[in-house]
Nucleic acid binder design. Structure first.
Lengths: 127, 127
DNA sequence: TTAAAGCATAGAGTGTACTCTAAGTCAAGA
DNA sequence: TCTTGACTTAGAGTACACTCTATGCTTTAA
């Protein structure tokens, strides 16, 4: 199956503008064109975009994604390098989760204190 | 104890530029000045900045932080509203953690596949 | 054949959060 | 007094990731 940019946008949740921007940045390595120049998205492209979405959620920049995409197109010699990228990214995600858990504790503590303060405030302002 | 902007920058890990920017954005409500205009950071300010750092790590924007800061200065009538802000933020953090855990699974799967592919590649290229 | 829809490009504009620069003030030590 | 260093401001500049605009080309249905 092949899809127009409009369909691809709907399927991936990105805008047509963003898909063209990603193409311009060369991070859609499998994307083909018709002879008149229209982009022709395949299932492989859709899957790739969904994978990019996942990488972006972990905080990976377009620049880093570009580097990875380039390595993918250079064949098996870059396998070790690509493996290292993901190992580093795994660490980064784990650190981010740990950091968020810490912040969660701080926010929860705030909620406790505000709950108490608010209860006391209501008590003082009883009619 | 009071600190200069340079000391405050070192203590909080932010730059002097950033601290001045935060002050301009009115998210440092307790910050005082000397009569000649120099900023005078107290321990309370340092704690507040560390708390802002925590909120920022959770993805809260300067704009939202400003709203919260404003509410803090309006007294007890805004207690309920502030409580709601933190409840919403708790939810946002929990969702972010869940999302990161999903991405972590995807990255881990990539690591497994690359580890295998790389082992096979090495096997094929034995001298 | 003509109108509309959908696609293309180059390049300008936007929002966020800084980050830096230029020019000037102020306080302390040689 | 003069220099040095730390501070001040307003406002310009930067990086990132889009987002939009203007203009024009194709394809398709009426």
């Amino acid at each position: 199956m092949h899809y127009s940019i409009k369909q691809a946008a709907r399927m991936t949740g990105l805008s047509e503008h963003t898909l063209r921007y990603y193409d311009k940045e060369n991070i859609l390595p499998y994307l083909e064109r018709t002879q008149s120049g229209t982009r022709r998205f395949s299932d492989r492209d859709i899957e790739w975009i969904e994978f990019l979405n996942c990488l972006k959620k972990t905080g990976m920049s377009i620049e880093n994604i570009k580097q990875y995409t380039d390595l993918c197109q250079q064949g098996d010699e870059t396998l070790a390098e690509r493996l290292e990228i993901f190992k580093a990214q795994r660490l980064a995600i784990e650190e981010k989760i740990a950091e968020l858990n810490e912040s969660l504790q701080v926010v929860k503590a705030k909620i406790s204190r505000y709950s108490e303060a608010y209860a006391a405030y209501q008590e003082n302002n009883k009619t």
